[in-house]
Amino acid sequence: MSFASCDPRAAWLMRLGDTTLVLGHRMTEWLSRAPTLEEDIALANLGLDLIGQTRLFYTRACELEGGARDETDLAYRRAEPDYRNPLLVEQPNGNFADTMARHLIFAGFATPLYQRLAASCDAETAGIATRSARETTYHLRHAGEWMIRLGDGTDESHERAQAALDDLWPYVPELFEADDLDRAVAASGFGVDPSTLRDDFDAAVDDVLARARLAKPAEPRGQRGGKAGRHSEHLGHILAELQYLQRAYPDARW
């Protein structure tokens, strides 16, 4: 089985699916650990949205590359370098501020991405993007409202929220750096060039940070590599857990 997709459209959709798969995994790690019962339910909703998006992106990618693989092959039967998610989403949950800061950055990126992708020349992809944009718009609201409360809450919460932003900001530039694949799918009218999304991201995030009394970190040189298959140490552990049953019992049907 060849793991990289030769169809650029499929390869690009897999990136989106890898991103929501990994972040969705992180959200499920919160289960029964949230600060309130209400928030446990809210975080599960975020996770369910991300798992749902993953299935749709993977399924469409598999159709576009000819149907030899399915969502389970993509989610469960590849190795670390085959996953092309940005490094941001594999960063550990940390404390609640770390998770909300990560989610604010993700949703601030994914929402304009999906909104533009809703105009894809591929009707299926456009439909998935429309639905997903509605979901991440709510994610942006939820993470944003929490960041405002943490930033403008107590001294302790402010410090934690600022530290979370400072720690995660090095993973922001990668989100918006276009590579050849991004440019190719954008040129064909199928996908979106992420470098065109930065203004929307800044507008959404700046508004939250101002209301949260949090300082926007200076633009770092940044950590990158996930989109090219070079990951942080964390992804291997995520996959070891995620893939455990499929790897241990390859003959099983679940």
Binding site: I41, Y138, R141
Partner: peptide
């Protein structure tokens, strides 16, 4: 109120 509204939506 805002957190109540969001929680109501989620719950």
């Amino acid at each position: 109120a805002m957190m109540a509204l969001q929680a109501a939506r989620d719950v």
